[in-house]
Amino acid sequence: MGGSPDISKKQLDHPLDDLIRTDRLPHIWCAGCGIGTVFSSCLTAIKASELELNNISMVSGIGCSGRAAGYVKLDSFHTTHGRAIPFATGLKLGNPDLNVIVFSGDGDLFAIGGNHMIHAARRNMDITVICVNNLNYGMTGGQVAATTPHMAKSTTTPSGNPEDPFNLPLLAYASGATYVARWTMLHTRELTSSIQEAILKKGFSFIEVLSPCPVNYGRRNKEKALDTLKLYQEKTIIRNGAIPAGLDIDFSKEVVLGKFVDVERDTYIERYEKICRQES
């Protein structure tokens, strides 16, 4: 038996320190933001997957979630606005052994970059897309996004959003994704095991994660950070296998979480090998 353990040293170590570029800390995420929890879930899932870390790359676009690629101590790629998926596609095709994870936000993936998302899903590119959905463009100061609920306030819709948002799981499903799930950042365990499952699954995997943006979205919609978490707790229901068409987000009713799609289909690379590289 030795002396008393060095508690102060123990407290300083974070179990994910080996996957984080600690020299980049402190991070930019605001107090009450959920991105850090999603990021942490993602890193925990990466560890649990027991994949060779040298073969994992993280790609992100622009925005608050987009900063993740700069914080992870893996090969990572902070790309341009909306283009995380095509960069990731190139990465995967250049080295099909890589496990490519796209970690980005709703604005980046579904507004300016929406086109890439549907085509990567259609092709069944073997990548995992994790979309942190905070319902607005957080980094530029809370403007309306393609995911902002109807009548929600933002800096560019001060009288309420006249448009309807995307149902992201439906869009992913309709475009051909072979794995589709939705969680909130409060459902950390489900989210973590879902990310692990998605990373290990062949084909295009898509996970939407609802996450609070108290500074830019909450403030304008009378929703404090804790209120949002309460909504996540009280107004959500897990319904695996739910029909994607019924997954609109409406917290005045209920918001369905779960794994909605888990099917097998040839990936882009498999098809390409079979059809375009077949020896005559």
Partner: peptide
């Protein structure tokens, strides 16, 4: 929106 022009349209 894009920084630093965002305030104009906001």
């Amino acid at each position: 929106p894009i920084t630093p022009s965002t305030q104009v349209v906001e």
